[in-house]
Amino acid sequence: MAAGGDHGSPDSYRSPLASRYASPEMCFVFSDRYKFRTWRQLWLWLAEAEQTLGLPITDEQIQEMKSNLENIDFKMAAEEEKRLRHDVMAHVHTFGHCCPKAAGIIHLGATSCYVGDNTDLIILRNALDLLLPKLARVISRLADFAKERASLPTLGFTHFQPAQLTTVGKRCCLWIQDLCMDLQNLKRVRDDLRFRGVKGTTGTQASFLQLFEGDDHKVEQLDKMVTEKAGFKRAFIITGQTYTRKVDIEVLSVLASLGASVHKICTDIRLLANLKEMEEPFEKQQIGSSAMPYKRNPMRSERCCSLARHLMTLVMDPLQTASVQWFERTLDDSANRRICLAEAFLTADTILNTLQNISEGLVVYPKVIERRIRQELPFMATENIIMAMVKAGGSRQDCHEKIRVLSQQAASVVKQEGGDNDLIERIQVDAYFSPIHSQLDHLLDPSSFTGRASQQVQRFLEEEVYPLLKPYESVMKVKAELCL
């Protein structure tokens, strides 16, 4: 049975990233139509530049190519590739079939990587351009969430054990800070992308030097003109047959890092959902379990974690691919890159769409948070109580021993009897502590235990987050809708 299948058929496997999760716009960027249309555009740009620099290419040939950029006979191309065992030459023939007058000058002087690699770089750039505003929107939604809850005390956790208090907004800023680093890295790697350009079979530009009869300047002009037509500021000066596969490492490393950030955020949300302090959106008709109707599973956060793990592992592909590119190139890269580049971007696209949807509907339960604080705060307040007693004339050592005994009794009630923490009640009825009984409410005010959390939130948002989001103001209103 021949390899390949009808990918629109229910009898043929289709990647869930495309069929179930990723956005239509990201799927289109990695589609065959987008790819092969870009090949034709690159052939047109090459012909236009070659004509401008004096090669015998007519206006009629150029116009014929322009008129057929979208006229792609995919069936013919597939048949040609089956016959020739070469995808680029299959599309040269297919393009030439609908451009008979231009057929002889299509791909003039070029090698397969002229269309293959340059198209990949265009796709990487455009895919990054799709991700950047999506990530900015996630940051914006979380920034709104953090600002609104900047002063809401909550129990902090280290080692997932109760620690000092923080605020809900401050905790959210930990998430935002990681995503801001990801946004900066995505922008950097996007701006650092260079075009492969017009380089020939081993990167020496020998074929173009021959076409222009040894004119170095025209060869350099050709490279520059096509690079500018493709919208790049610069091209690699040095290439082998391909652009260095280190570029793929750079791009997928940034995406993998984004995956790590999203995994951490969504894990926190899942843990908070278990504590009943916070939940992701839950639709009115949504079913959490087929057997347990009360369940409210954090399905979206779980999906993000599941896909983020996949995204983090994909960076190993370009690392290994770059390491086995012998001399000017081997074909070890080809099949692998067809999979890992598309999957990385479709996965990143999915987790950003999902995280935006989550961040637009996060639900906080202040009463649950308050109750958990009441359970733990008495123990945390013991040092403040000791200091207040010393100020009232008591002995630190005597007070410490009193607190120690009462704390152990209260802990026994919590752990052995399943009761509430009654340390404060014990202190309130103990005559030894009568000098500070009137101060206990103040000493137990949760806001006095959150330090500068709310001020940190305000400063972080104003100095770091809002300036970073400013270039994306025009796209901030787009909502994230999930079908599944």
Results as ranks from 00 to 15, higher is better:
Ile265Ser: 11
Thr382Ser: 11
Ala110Trp: 02
Ile105Lys: 14
Ala143Lys: 05
Leu84Arg: 11
Asp332Met: 04
Ser257Cys: 07
Ser323Ala: 12
Lys187Tyr: 11
His400Met: 04
Leu255Cys: 12
Val247Phe: 03
Cys172Val: 13
Ile62Thr: 11
Arg14Val: 11
Phe232Ala: 01
Leu165Gly: 01
Leu319Glu: 05
Asn185Trp: 08
Gln63Ile: 14
Leu258Trp: 15
Val168Gly: 02
Asn185Tyr: 09
Ser31Lys: 05
Arg270Ala: 01
Ser290Glu: 04
Leu311Tyr: 00
Glu481Ala: 15
Gln63Val: 10
Val413Glu: 12
Asp191Arg: 09
Asp420Lys: 06
Thr58Cys: 13
Asn68Gln: 13
Cys304Trp: 03
Leu307His: 15
Gly5Thr: 15
His217Thr: 13
Ala18Thr: 15
Asp191Gly: 08
Asp6Asn: 14
Leu152Val: 11
Ser9Val: 13
Val363Ala: 05
Met26Tyr: 07
Ser23His: 09
Met476Gly: 15
Arg303Asn: 01
Phe236Gly: 02
Gln439Val: 10
His310Gly: 07
Asp223Ser: 05
Arg37Ile: 13
Leu128Ile: 12
Val115Gln: 03
Gly419Glu: 12
Leu314Cys: 13
Ser323Thr: 11
Phe157Trp: 11
Thr201His: 00
Val413Pro: 01
Gly197Leu: 01
Met312Ala: 05
Glu64Gly: 09
Gly197Ser: 11
Leu69Cys: 14
Leu307Cys: 14
Ser257Pro: 08
Ala127Val: 05
Leu108Thr: 11
Lys477Leu: 13
Leu132Lys: 11
Asp117Gln: 00
Pro24Cys: 09
Pro298Ala: 13
Glu370Asn: 14
Ala411Asp: 05
Leu362Ser: 08
Gly393Tyr: 08
Cys304Glu: 06
Asn297Val: 05
Gly200Leu: 00
Ile62Gly: 02
Lys35Asn: 10
Arg337Ala: 04
Arg149Met: 12
Arg234Met: 15
Leu179Lys: 00
Phe212Ser: 05
Arg459Leu: 11
Leu319Lys: 02
Gly104Lys: 14
Gln409Cys: 08
Tyr472Thr: 07
Gly8Ser: 15
Phe157Tyr: 13
Ser207Trp: 03
Asp129Ser: 14
Ser290Tyr: 03
Ser448His: 15
Glu80Tyr: 09
Ser19Met: 05
Cys483Leu: 09
Ala256Thr: 08
Phe212Ile: 05
Trp39Leu: 03
Ser407Arg: 03
Ala49Phe: 00
Leu469Pro: 03
Thr58Trp: 09
Asn68Phe: 08
Ala322Thr: 11
Leu275His: 13
Gly418Ala: 03
Ala78Gln: 12
Ser67Ile: 11
Asp32Ile: 11
Met76Ser: 10
Leu255His: 14
Val198Thr: 14
Gly418Cys: 04
Gly156Cys: 06
Cys173Asp: 05
Gln164Ser: 10
Asp32Val: 11
Leu132Phe: 10
Tyr472Asn: 11
Asn384Trp: 04
Lys170Trp: 01
Asp420Gly: 03
Ser474Gly: 15
Glu360Phe: 03
Val198Phe: 01
Ser434Leu: 10
Asp73Cys: 08
Val390Ser: 06
Leu311Ser: 05
Glu70Val: 13
Val138Lys: 02
Gly288Phe: 01
Met380Ala: 06
Asp144Ala: 15
Leu108Arg: 01
Phe379Asn: 00
Tyr432Ala: 08
Arg196Leu: 13
Asp117Gly: 02
Ser301His: 01
Met181Tyr: 09
Gly116Glu: 01
His437Arg: 11
Ser412Lys: 12
Thr58Ile: 08
Leu331Ala: 03
Gly197Trp: 01
Asp333Phe: 00
Pro24Asp: 13
Ser306Ala: 09
Val457Trp: 06
Val88Leu: 10
Phe433Leu: 07
Glu48Gln: 09
Met389Thr: 00
Arg338Ser: 00
Asn68Tyr: 07
Val115Pro: 07
Val364Pro: 08
Met76Ile: 13
Leu341His: 14
Asn297Ser: 00
Asn71Arg: 10
Pro281Thr: 09
Arg426Val: 04
Phe460Arg: 03
Phe449Lys: 08
Gln241Glu: 01
Asp430Asn: 10
Ile265Arg: 02
Leu131Asn: 07
Trp45Gln: 11
Leu469Phe: 06
Arg83Trp: 09
Ile237Gly: 09
Thr242Trp: 00
Lys66Met: 11
Ala348Gly: 12
Ile62Tyr: 05
Ala146Asp: 00
Pro318Arg: 01
Lys367Ala: 14
Glu425Ser: 11
Leu352Asp: 08
Ile265Val: 10
Trp39Met: 12
Phe74Lys: 15
Met316Trp: 13
Leu69Ala: 13
Phe36Ala: 15
Glu283Ser: 14
Ala348Cys: 12
Leu484Asp: 07
Ile238Met: 10
Lys199Thr: 06
Ala22Pro: 09
Ser448Asn: 15
Ile369Phe: 05
Lys187Met: 09
Ala348Leu: 08
Ile351Arg: 04
Gly169Val: 00
Gly200Glu: 01
Ser301Phe: 02
Arg141Ser: 15
Lys402Gly: 05
Ser151His: 09
Lys229His: 05
Leu84Met: 06
Arg270Cys: 00
Ser151Ile: 08
Thr52Lys: 14
Gln455Arg: 13
Gly203His: 00
Pro24Gln: 14
Lys276Ala: 02
Ala388Gln: 09
Lys264Glu: 01
Val88Met: 05
Ser15Pro: 12
Lys233Asp: 08
Gly203Gln: 01
Val475Tyr: 07
Arg452Met: 10
Leu135Asn: 05
Met26Phe: 05
Ala49Glu: 01
Gly96Ser: 09
Pro133Val: 15
Ser257Arg: 05
Asp32Phe: 10
Gln164Lys: 00
Leu42Ile: 10
Glu401Ala: 14
Tyr243Ile: 15
Val363Pro: 05
Leu362His: 08
Ile106Asn: 02
Thr227Met: 07
Met476Ile: 14
Leu222Gly: 04
Cys483Met: 13
Lys147Leu: 11
Trp175Phe: 00
Glu463Gln: 11
Pro24Leu: 12
Lys170Gln: 04
Ala206Arg: 02
Asp333Pro: 04
Leu183Pro: 00
Leu222Asp: 07
Gln205Gly: 11
Asn357Thr: 12
Val168Gln: 02
Phe74Ile: 15
